[in-house]
Design a protein around this nucleic acid. Structure first.
Lengths: 359, 359
DNA sequence: TTGAAAGCGCTAACAT
DNA sequence: ATGTTAGCGCTTTCAA
């Protein structure tokens, strides 16, 4: 009666067509032919026929049986943020090559969302986690740890939990940026950051603070409350600038704050770097192309991705008990990419030969 | 001997603790208590205990049994492209609210990658597909259609296949942009596009061509080969500009081309809009914040996302045979957001009161 | 009203 | 060397 359209081939079909048992087929397909001493002839016949009919095992059944899904859950703060998008893409590619799939989701730094996503990933039985932890999810992470599911954090870590993590030395980055500004002759350097007190933000703040303390120079830290509505953020930065006219340079602690900052600066009609020098944490298309181009503290995205996935896959493939092994923690170095927004004397770049006369 | 740490609660545990059958528990949990005439008292006891122990059914087992995963596969061109990232995020949110999860992947417009991803999603038994089709995947899409798995395309469609799709009227967008440039007094308008001949690109080209034809004005279309290496793209645009000094305005067919274009223009030291007016397809942080701000043809991202997910969920929940129903196709209107990059006479925007004297 | 039991498609221990 | 079979955890029909 019903018009059955799908008729996937099953392992059963293969076995009966070939007149062997399904165990033989399964063994061959899982590369265990040799160790089960299945004859090469049979193995080859199986492989050939499987290829011929395009048989694909049902992953659901396989996973249900083995308890392994070969899926990794990736929880980032915001996949639309180019930093996270880049790292995610790199991680995905490497995982794919090694037979793992990634499913990713953004928390928007909301602990509730983060908890929900972790729960969802657990329900989906991911084999491992890669997490950019938002505040207040210590409990969920420690649950994962207790269940001995492999996990690697990146960008920041949870100081109270013995997890693997890969982070960047934010303090070193901001310290270097601050020294660069001082060397350029800026003396009133402000630091604009978020209201987060997570490790990566505190480190970035600390690098700035320490250098200025050493020089006995004034610090000026502005913490901006990050809301969904961007207008108050921009307005807040504008107000800060107006209230502190002596400030001659600003270090932004993260890429999106810099973007809001550029908007605020543009609205106030201030010129970069003449009125105000700018350095941002994180690189971005916008910063490269902005006029003037923005100096940034760039994070080593390839290295972050590579190390994260290496650590995770190692645990995934390691039969040993993870709980007993010491967690791995890695601190990578950022690099300062100097562009025009932080140079006191504008550098004159020679025009290309024969500038075209358009218009 | 072994230290078993995980001990998930199973439906069995619930049933035996409550001294009811597992069928009863299952029925209650799936909201079929009423229709199976299970007593309210029992139903309530089940729900209460389930809540208490935090029982979560094993999705793998459930899916294996029901054949439904409640997962939708989303295949986009490039998740790092703000246009796709935004639409994906909106789709994800709406799907989530309705009990579906999204797994997404980027094809980078490589047919092989697209095929691989579709295969992977099929292996994972997604309930439905949302796809931004790259060229050459007609076969895969028609396979999906034949298996009667619901699918919705967006951004572009495959003219030969009767699928649901949601696209934007690119021709209308570029026509309006072209007219705007003409109204501003630009007469030598070039169109820079990719080497793609897919529907969305051809439509954008056509809007431009038609308006200029009507006015008997010269067309100048430059097709840029998009490669992974960005340098040749930028250089190509530079060469085009140098070879065509009479061009006084450019329409870019997509956001990333505009970004390369801005780089080329900046290298040549040309001024926008005095030497060259610029309009981009797609909005972007960069375009809003660039000096001067870039006029864009903006796509209605919210509407795209909403319609895509509505059509898909409708099919997912509709018991009827999809193959017989006519596919839905939707063409939405873009909007021209006029900024300074396309205005012949620079508009003077009054500075905010009391511009601060910094530095 | 509720319970027993038959699978969903696969793997792997145990037979042969 | 290969076949038999007992589950993985759940849903759902059918019987009681």
């Amino acid at each position: 009666m019903s018009t059955k359209v799908k008729k996937r081939t099953l392992i059963n079909d293969i076995a009966s067509h070939l007149e062997v048992s399904i165990a033989t087929v399964s063994l061959v397909l899982n590369g265990k032919a040799k160790q089960s001493r299945i004859s090469d002839a049979v193995a080859e016949r199986v492989l050939k026929y499987v290829e011929e009919v395009g048989y694909k095992p049902n992953h659901l059944a396989k996973s249900l049986r083995t308890g392994k899904t070969h899926v990794i859950g990736l929880v980032v703060e915001d996949i639309a943020n180019p930093f996270f998008a880049t790292v995610a893409a790199l991680i995905e590619r490497q995982a794919f090559e090694r037979g793992y799939r990634i499913i990713y989701c953004s928390t928007n730094n909301e602990p509730a969302k983060a908890r929900e996503l972790i729960a969802m990933f657990q329900e989906r039985h991911v084999d491992g986690f890669i997490v950019v932890p938002s505040e207040g999810i210590d409990k969920e992470v420690s649950d994962i740890l207790r269940e001995q599911t492999p996990i690697v954090l990146f960008d920041r870590y949870l100081p109270d939990l013995p997890t693997n993590y890969v982070v960047v030395d934010g303090a070193q980055g901001t310290a270097e940026a601050t020294r660069h500004l001082l060397a350029q002759g800026y003396t009133n350097i402000a630091f604009i950051t978020t209201d987060s007190v997570q490790t990566q933000m505190e480190a970035r703040l600390q690098g700035y603070t320490q250098v200025l303390e050493e020089q006995n120079l004034p610090r000026k830290v502005q913490r901006v409350v990050v809301t969904k509505d961007t207008e108050p953020i921009i307005a807040g930065i504008q107000e800060f600038l107006q209230a502190n006219p002596e400030v001659d340079a600003i270090l932004f602690s993260t890429n999106y704050l810099s973007i809001y900052g550029l908007e605020a600066i543009s609205r106030l009609g201030l010129r970069i770097p003449d009125d105000l020098a700018i350095i941002s944490y994180d690189d971005h298309d916008l910063f490269r192309l902005y006029t003037p181009a923005i100096t940034v503290i760039a994070q080593p995205v390839e290295s972050i991705a590579k190390n994260v996935i290496d650590i995770l896959l190692h645990e995934l493939q390691e039969p040993g008990d993870q709980a007993t092994a010491a967690p791995q923690s890695l601190v990578l170095a950022p690099s300062l990419v100097i562009r025009k927004s932080s140079l006191k004397t504008a550098v004159v770049i020679p025009k290309p030969v024969a500038a075209v006369g358009l218009g």
